[in-house]
Design a protein around this nucleic acid. Structure first.
Length: 478
RNA sequence: GGUCCCAUCGUCUAGUGGUUAGGACGCUGGCCUCUCACGCCGGAAACCAGGGUUCAACUCCCUGUGGGACUACCA
């Protein structure tokens, strides 16, 4: 039996979690859950200048919000920790020593300026910009000389001509020639490990057997496989999924608008909707349906159905899913989710938690595409001094309309205690004025709510209550 | 420039040699209805191009074209 998959999501805390990375996390998570394996979170914070603790915190928040729980990682230590690369520096150091001892790496004393110059020259002479191995064959004396000058070396991995092949679970057989690759840095002059180096060591030591990541890492894989060979480690199985693209078909980035998970949260996107959408983007499930629960997604997930071509992020479809998830929320649950948005709009807790409020939410549920939409749809229930829309004005200007409103209002005023007052008043108004259909409903709707659109009138009336309804109507009877 | 990846409606996708090329979002016509939303029914809309292979190509192969990623002492 194949061993249980151990997969990881390894973000660097250099910014907010964005949808691209979130989808990678989701794929890994679904893969682990589908196969009963483990999902590991590892923080790749070796770039001290760009990493920030605050990003780590928001990263954890976002993953939890999405419901992507990890089995091992920061705050959930397992047998393979620590799970922050900054806490594993001695591990990298000892592994560097192994490669030095095996004469597979060498110190490089070139400065960034020198390297940049070399690169420019190569580009000018229309050759491949890559490191030409200036420091590769330095004699021990030359090295000592540079050390004496106080130069701190970076360490480069020696590339030998070879063909690197690996089987990608999504893309099939991949083949790379090493001679296009220059000796690359595995440890920087400040002593910090470089990505390709740390990732290989960690994935091996953490027993990661499936690496699922974005296509942008495809060419890195060749470098990493050379390192696996150098260490004598067995490489994991790789799977490179396609990238999420913006409308211009370029890799999705900030300039395409909202892309961070936090932004979607603030806009009132439900995590279920976002997860569902991300699962659908650039992939499909065994189950052909598109609105899927978390459990159904896990059950229907397979890398075989991951698309090889990039997928444009379609916000319209996300919103469609979001509206469905909002509609399907139990009203109580929806009120809870809506609460932060309502409080921001100035609604008091007592109102939000009242029974009457639940009835209102029930009425407007189907109108919402995002949670942030809520205010536009409930204001008519709370604002007694609303402005009429142009359409509402037009309707109320008619004489017949005035008559309808007046008749309706008068009946209400004289029968406040009657059962089913609304129905009775409507019946009365219909008979008395002869108005029916639009002629009957619209003036009352317009006078009652100031708008020509909204939930069914009878329900609006009940929520408003007779007193409030009367107050509003009287305002229009001049 | 080099290396690599990719190519079905506008978008996300199903499809694995023989299909009226299916679904979803969006768009659109209608039904429901006081209105809007929801819901329901219908419509328009695609196999990048050219060569092969084959009785038969969206499907397999080659070339071209187009798009993308990588090409850092970032991950």
């Amino acid at each position: 039996m194949a061993p249980k998959p151990r997969v990881r999501f390894a973000p660097s805390p250099t910014g907010e979690l964005h949808v691209g990375n979130a989808r990678t996390a989701l794929f890994n998570w679904m893969y682990a859950r589908h196969h009963g394996g483990s999902f590991i979170l590892r923080i790749e914070d070796t770039d001290e200048s760009r990493s920030a603790l605050s990003y780590q915190i928001s990263l954890f928040d976002d993953l939890k919000w999405l419901g992507l729980d990890w089995d091992e990682g920061p705050n959930k230590e397992g047998a393979y920790g620590p799970y922050r690369q900054s806490e594993r520096l001695d591990i990298y150091k000892s592994h560097l020593q192994k490669l030095i001892d095996a004469d597979l790496v060498y110190p490089c004393y070139c400065t960034e300026e020198e390297l940049e110059e070399e690169r420019q020259n190569l580009i000018l002479s229309k050759r491949m910009p890559r490191y030409m191995g200036k420091c590769r064959n330095l004699s021990p004396d030359e090295r000592k000389q540079r050390e004496k000058e106080g130069k701190k070396p970076s360490y480069r991995f020696k590339i030998y001509p070879q063909t690197i092949e690996f089987k990608d679970l999504i893309r099939g057989l991949m083949k790379f020639e090493a001679d296009a690759i220059g000796d690359f840095i595995i440890v920087r002059s400040n002593g910090m490990p470089a990505y390709n180096f740390a990732v290989v060591i960690d994935d091996h030591l953490m027993n990661i057997n499936h690496v699922i990541r974005g296509e942008d890492h495809l060419s890195n894989t060749a470098l990493q496989i050379m390192l696996y060979r150098a260490f004598g480690f067995e490489p994991p199985t790789f799977a490179h999924h396609s990238l999420i693209l913006g409308k211009d078909r370029a890799k999705l980035s900030k300039r395409h608008g909202s892309v961070s998970i936090g932004e979607f949260r603030k806009q009132g996107i439900l995590p279920e909707a976002l997860v569902n959408y991300l699962g659908l983007l650039g992939s499909s499930f065994t189950d052909a349906r598109e609105v899927l629960s978390r459990e159904e997604m896990i059950a229907g997930f397979t890398l075989k159905r991951a698309s090889r071509s990039g997928a444009i992020f379609d916000e319209e479809k996300l919103l469609w899913l979001n509206a469905i998830y909002i509609r399907n929320c139990k009203t109580e649950d929806l009120v809870a989710r809506l609460t932060p948005f309502l409080e921001q709009s100035g609604f008091k807790k007592e109102i939000i938690n009242s029974e009457g409020f639940k009835r209102i939410i029930d009425l407007v549920k189907t109108d919402l595409t995002t949670l942030a939409d809520i205010e536009n749809h409930i204001s008519l229930f709370f604002d007694d001094k609303y402005e009429l829309t142009d359409e509402a004005k037009k309707i109320l200007e008619k004489d017949t309309a005035q008559n309808v409103v007046r008749t309706f209002a008068r009946y209400l005023a004289h029968n406040t205690e009657q059962q089913n007052l609304y129905a009775a008043a409507m019946k009365h108004t219909k008979e008395k004025t002869g108005a029916k259909g639009k002629e009957l409903f619209m003036p009352i709707r317009a006078a009652l709510t100031g708008k020509t659109h909204g939930p069914e009138l009878d329900k609006v009336f009940i929520v408003l209550g007779t007193n409030s309804a009367l107050k509003r109507l009287e305002f229009f009877i001049r």
